[in-house]
Design a protein around this nucleic acid. Structure first.
Length: 893
RNA sequence: GCGCGGUUAGCUCAGUGGUAGAGCACCACCUUGACACGGUGGGGGUCACUGGUUCGAACCCAGUAUCGCGCACCA
C-alpha cells in the first residue's frame, strides 16, 4: 500500500507549494524576455477590504488565465495591488477613533488623522493580500502597487494638471449629490436609487390676490418648503393657466412667491403644480436657473434644517423636520391629504443614507477621448465578454455627465491646486472660489507647490478614488515620464477580469484614460464575471449575513476545491447562486484525483514510459485518445473564455472516463497475477495520461496538481509543473487504427453496462461468479473477454457460437454480441417472457417512429442527406434488434 | 417608460434545428484491495404559455406571462 493518506488533506499541501513557488520566483515577470507577453492588472481590492466570494471568483479566473498563459509559452505579468478607497477607509478609521478613543477627525487635525490612517493601513492593509495568496494567486508580488505610492500619486497629480491645462477640469458651483453622513460630494455613480416607502403630501397655498382661493400642490418633502421660491405649472395645463404670473403665499417663513410656467412639470402627476426649491432638488435647480430664481439653502451640510426664521424647525434633522413641517401645515389647515407612496430615493453607496441634492463648489471633469473610447468597444478593438455589455457601455458613453471629482475628505490624493492667501482672505473661505472668481495670478495648478509656498493655501479637497483607479493599467507600470521596460513589454494588457457593476466606475474610465495618457487602449479583452448571490437570489452582503467567508471554506475544503467548485458553476455572465455543496464537490473531485494516483502508486512508484513495443489494448488507446480530445476541447473553451466548460470537461474526463472506465478496466493488470507486459502497458498509459492531465488541470487546481506531479515523478525534483509547457503533440496519432481501437473500447464499455444491467434485473448484481455465454461476437472479443468480465463483474465470459440456450435464459443484446446469462434455478420462463415482451414493445415503438419519419416524403427530400442516412442506419439497428428479440421470445415457446 | 437577461428534472444549471442532458438530492443494492469525499442500478421533465417559420423547434421569429438587472422619470 502506498504511504499516501487515504483522503487528500489540502491545507498543508497548499501552503507548502505556495511558499515553494514564491521561493522559486515562479510569479515574477521578466520584461526582457523574448517570449510573447501576457498581462493582467488586478482590479485592486480596497486596502482595508476582506476577501469575499466575488473576489474569489474574479481572482481565480485571473489566476487561471495567467497560469494557462505560462503553460502556453507566454511571459506573464499579473500585476497586483490595492486601492486606497477614500471614503471606505476614512470612514472605517473615523469609526474606530470614535469608538475606541472618542475622537473626531477634526479634533485630531488633518496631518495627525492621516498618520492614523497610514498606521491603520500598515496594520490591516495586508490582510486581503494574504488572502489572495492563500487562494493560490500567482501575482508578481515583487511589483505590488498601492494607489497612494509616491510614483502613483505623482501620476494622479500630473493627470489633474494636464486635464486642467487642457481646460477639461474646472471648478464651479453646481448641484451635486451630497452625503450628509460622510459630509462630501459624490459622483452620480456612487448614488444608488432605492425604492422607499414614503408619504405624498397634498397641501394648498393661498393666492395673494384672492384670499380664500388656493392652489393645490403635492410634495414628498415638506421640510424643504422654506426654500421654495416659486410654484410651477405646465403652460399647457388649462387648469392653471389663469394662475401663471400671479403670487401665492408660502406659509413659513411667510413670503409671496410667483406661479411660473415650465414644460418640465408633468400634468398627470399629483396636482399638476410643483413647488420649486432650487437649493434642494436637481430639477428645481434647473428650473430656477431657467427662470432666474433665487436660491435659498435651508439645510446644513449634515442634513439639519438651517432656517432661523422658523425656530421650531431650525436645527432639526431633515426626517424629523419632514414630520414636523407636515404637522405644522396641518395645524394651519393647509394640509389636504397624506397618502402612502413609493418612490425611489438616491442613497449614498458607502454611508447607506439618502443623499441630499446640494449646491456646492466642486471640481468637475469633462471626459477626454470619449469618441475613441466609445469606438474602441463598438469596433471590438476591445472585446467585451459577454458581448451584451457593449450596449450598456455605449449607452453610458452617449450620456456622459461631467464627473464630480472632488471629495471633502482627507484620505486620498489632495487636489494639486493652491490659492493666494490674500485672495482667500478677501473671499473668506476657499470653498467659495469658483473659476470665475479667480484670476491667473490667484491660482497655482501643478504637481509641485508654488515657490513662495507660504503665501499660498492648498485646496483642501481630495480626489475621488476612481480618479486614481482609472490610471491603474499604466500608472502601475511606469513612473511619470519614465521609459519603462515593463510598460513597453506588457502594455496594453491582454485581459481584464472584473464585475459588470463597475463598467462605469472603472472600465469605461480606464479606456478613456488609456487613450488620453498611454497612447491607446489599456486592454484587449474584458471578461465580466457573474455576480454571486445566495440560494434565494439575494446579493451577498454583510448585513444579510448570507456571505460565507472564503477563508472558512478554504479551511474546510481547500483552496483548489473552492476555486474549482465556484468556477464549475459560474455561468458566462449571468448570476451565480452560490451553494456550499458545489465546493464540497470540488473537494470530492480533488479526492478522487488523489486516490486515482494513490492507486497507481500501489503498483510501484517508478514512472513508466510507453514505446512502440508496449502491448496496448483498446482501452489503453481509448483513454489516450480521449486525453488528446480533452486537450483540444480545452483549447476551444479557453479561446472562448468559457471557464465553466473547461471545468466541466476536466471533471468529466477524470471521473467518467479515467476512473469509471479506464481504471476499472485495468484493475486486473495491476494485480500480481498480471503479466509483466500487461502491467508495463497499463502503468505506462496511466503515467502518460496522468502527467498531461495534471498539467491541464493545473490552472484550476494549482496546488494538488503540483503536489501530485512531484509525488508521481512527472516533474523532476526542483522543477514545477506550473512552469512546464503543455505538450504540443498527441499521445495517439489520429487515423484508422485509433478509431478502430476506440470502437472496440466503446463496444466493451457499453456491453459491460448491458451485462451489469441484466444482472441487476435478476437481482444478482453483487454476485461475481456469474457466467455469460456469448454468440455472434466479433473475432477480437476473445482477446478482450477478460476486460469485459472484469467490468461487468462476471466470473467468466464464454464464446460459444453453438450455444443453445435453455428456454428462458436471460439474454441481452449488446454491441459485442448476444449475451446469455444461464442461471440455474433462477430462470423463470414467464418472467423472462414478460421482460422480453416489454422490451419488444419499446423497440417496436422506436421502429415505428423511425419508419414514420422515413416514410415522410418531405423529410427524405428536404432534410440534409447525412441526416436521412443517419435515420436509416438507426432504423436498421432497431429492426435488427427487434428481430433478435422476437427470436428470443419465440425460443421460449 | 426604455434597454438587457432569465424561465429545461425536487435544487443548481448545460444544451444554436435532427432520439431531452449533467451534478446534487431521492430510491434500491454494495464496506469488492484507490476513493463511502466511493461503486452499481433505478425513478423523475407538456423544455413558462400562445401563435408562426420549417420535413422537423428546448433551440429561429412574433406576442403573452413571470422573475431579475440596468438606465431615465418620480413633485
Amino acid at each position: 500500500m502506498s504511504d499516501l493518506a487515504k483522503a487528500y488533506e489540502p491545507q498543508a499541501v497548499e501552503a507548502k507549494w505556495y511558499d515553494a513557488w514564491l521561493k522559486g520566483k515562479c510569479f515574477e515577470a521578466d520584461p526582457a524576455s523574448d517570449k510573447p507577453a501576457y498581462s493582467i492588472v488586478i482590479p485592486p481590492p480596497n486596502v482595508t477590504g476582506i476577501l469575499h466570494l466575488g473576489h474569489v471568483l474574479n481572482n481565480a479566473l485571473q489566476d487561471i488565465l495567467a497560469r494557462r498563459a505560462r503553460q502556453t509559452g507566454h511571459e506573464v505579468l499579473w500585476l497586483p495591488g490595492t486601492d486606497h478607497a477614500g471614503i471606505a477607509t476614512q470612514t472605517k478609521v473615523e469609526r474606530e477613533l470614535r469608538e475606541k478613543e472618542g475622537l473626531k477627525r477634526r479634533e485630531l487635525g488633518r496631518e495627525k488623522f492621516l498618520d492614523r490612517v497610514w498606521e491603520w493601513k500598515e496594520k490591516h492593509g495586508g490582510i486581503i493580500i494574504q488572502q489572495l495568496k492563500r487562494l493560490g494567486c500567482s501575482c508578481d508580488w515583487s511589483r505590488e502597487r498601492f494607489t497612494m505610492d509616491d510614483d502613483y500619486t505623482h501620476w494622479v497629480s500630473q493627470v489633474f494638471v494636464d486635464l486642467f491645462k487642457q481646460g477639461l477640469i474646472y471648478r464651479g458651483k453646481r448641484m451635486v449629490n451630497w452625503c450628509p453622513v460622510s459630509l462630501t460630494a459624490l459622483s452620480d455613480e456612487e448614488v444608488i436609487m432605492t425604492p422607499q416607502r414614503s408619504k405624498l403630501y397634498t397641501m394648498k397655498y393661498e393666492l395673494a390676490d384672492a384670499p380664500g382661493e388656493f392652489l393645490q400642490i403635492a410634495t414628498t418633502r415638506p421640510e424643504t418648503l422654506m426654500g421654495d421660491v416659486a410654484v410651477a405649472v405646465n403652460p399647457k395645463d388649462p387648469r392653471y393657466s389663469q394662475y401663471i404670473g400671479r403670487m401665492v403665499k408660502r406659509p413659513f417663513p411667510h413670503a409671496e412667491i410667483p406661479v411660473i410656467a415650465d414644460d418640465h412639470v408633468d400634468i398627470e402627476f399629483g396636482t399638476g403644480a410643483l413647488k420649486i426649491t432650487p437649493a434642494h432638488d436637481k430639477a428645481d435647480f434647473d428650473i430656477g436657473m431657467r427662470h432666474g430664481l433665487e436660491i435659498i439653502d435651508t439645510l446644513h451640510a449634515d442634513g439639519r434644517v438651517n432656517c432661523p426664521e422658523c425656530p421650531d424647525l431650525d436645527g432639526l434633522d431633515r426626517f424629523a423636520a419632514r414630520k414636523k413641517a407636515a404637522r405644522k401645515l396641518e395645524e394651519m389647515g393647509l394640509l389636504l391629504k397624506e397618502e402612502d407612496y413609493e418612490n425611489k430615493v438616491g442613497f449614498s453607496e458607502r454611508a447607506n443614507v439618502p443623499i441630499e441634492p446640494r449646491i456646492s463648489m466642486q471640481w468637475f471633469l469633462k471626459y477626454p477621448c470619449v469618441d475613441e473610447a466609445a469606438k474602441a468597444v463598438a469596433d471590438d478593438e476591445i472585446v467585451f465578454r459577454p458581448e451584451r455589455w457593449q450596449k450598456t457601455y455605449a449607452h453610458w458613453m452617449e450620456n456622459l455627465q461631467d464627473w464630480c471629482i472632488s471629495r471633502q475628505l482627507w484620505w486620498g490624493h489632495q487636489i494639486p491646486v493652491w490659492y493666494r492667501k490674500d485672495k482667500l482672505d478677501q473671499l473668506k473661505e476657499a470653498a467659495a472660489l469658483g473659476m470665475e472668481d479667480l484670476e491667473k495670478g490667484d491660482i497655482h495648478v501643478g504637481t509641485e507647490p508654488p515657490a513662495d509656498e507660504s503665501e499660498w493655501v492648498r485646496d483642501e479637497d481630495v480626489m475621488d478614488t476612481w480618479f486614481s483607479s482609472w490610471l491603474w493599467p499604466f500608472a502601475t507600470m511606469a513612473a511619470v515620464g519614465e521609459e519603462s521596460a515593463l510598460l513597453k513589454k506588457f502594455y496594453p494588457t491582454t485581459d481584464l477580469v472584473t464585475g459588470p457593476d463597475i463598467i462605469f466606475f472603472w472600465v469605461a474610465r480606464m479606456i478613456m484614460a488609456g487613450y488620453r495618457f498611454a497612447g491607446g487602449l489599456p486592454f484587449k479583452n474584458v471578461y465580466f464575471t457573474s455576480i454571486i448571490r445566495d440560494l434565494q437570489g439575494r446579493k451577498m452582503s454583510k448585513s444579510l449575513g448570507n456571505s460565507p467567508d472564503p477563508i472558512d471554506l478554504m479551511d474546510k475544503y481547500g483552496a483548489d476545491a473552492l476555486r474549482f467548485g465556484l468556477i464549475r458553476i459560474a455561468p458566462v455572465g449571468s448570476d451565480i447562486r452560490f451553494d456550499e455543496v458545489q465546493i464540497e464537490e470540488g473537494r470530492n473531485f480533488a479526492n478522487k484525483l488523489y486516490n486515482a494516483c494513490r492507486f497507481r502508486q500501489m503498483a510501484g512508484t517508478e514512472v513508466v514510459t510507453i514505446s512502440s513495443a508496449t502491448e496496448v489494448r483498446p482501452h489503453h488507446v481509448d483513454i489516450m485518445a480521449k486525453l488528446d480530445d480533452l486537450a483540444e476541447n480545452l483549447q476551444g473553451a479557453y479561446a472562448g473564455y468559457r471557464f465553466g466548460e473547461v471545468a466541466h470537461l476536466l471533471y468529466e474526463f477524470l471521473w467518467n472516463e479515467f476512473c469509471d472506465k479506464f481504471l476499472e478496466a485495468v484493475k486486473s493488470d495491476l494485480r500480481e497475477s498480471a503479466t509483466p507486459a500487461a502491467r508495463e502497458a497499463t502503468l505506462g498509459v496511466f503515467d502518460s495520461v496522468m502527467a498531461v492531465y495534471l498539467q491541464l488541470l493545473h490552472p484550476y487546481m494549482p496546488h494538488i496538481t503540483e503536489e501530485l506531479s512531484v509525488r508521481m515523478g512527472y516533474v523532476a525534483e526542483g522543477e514545477f509543473v506550473m512552469q512546464k509547457l503543455l505538450p504540443s503533440g498527441t499521445l495517439v496519432p489520429r487515423g484508422a487504427l485509433r478509431d478502430e481501437m476506440q470502437e472496440k473500447a466503446t463496444a466493451i464499455y457499453e456491453t459491460a453496462g448491458r451485462l451489469r444491467n441484466l444482472k441487476a434485473e435478476y437481482n444478482v448484481a453483487t454476485r461475481r461468479d456469474v457466467r455469460f455465454v456469448v454468440k455472434g461476437a466479433p473475432a477480437w472479443l476473445s482477446s478482450e473477454s477478460d476486460t469485459l468480465a472484469l467490468l461487468s463483474g462476471a466470473g467468466e465470459i464464454a464464446l460459444d457460437e453453438a450455444y443453445d440456450p435453455p428456454k428462458g435464459t436471460p439474454a441481452a443484446l449488446a454491441p459485442a454480441g448476444e449475451f446469455y446469462m444461464p442461471l440455474e434455478g433462477l430462470i423463470d420462463v414467464e418472467a423472462e417472457k414478460d421482460r422480453l415482451t416489454k422490451e419488444i414493445d419499446k423497440v417496436g415503438k422506436e421502429v415505428a417512429k423511425s419508419e414514420g419519419k422515413l416514410g415522410n416524403a418531405s423529410f427524405v427530400e428536404r432534410a440534409p442527406a447525412e441526416v436521412v442516412e443517419q435515420e436509416k442506419a438507426r432504423l436498421e439497428e432497431w429492426r435488427t434488434k427487434l428481430a433478435q428479440l422476437r427470436e428470443m421470445l419465440a425460443a421460449l415457446g
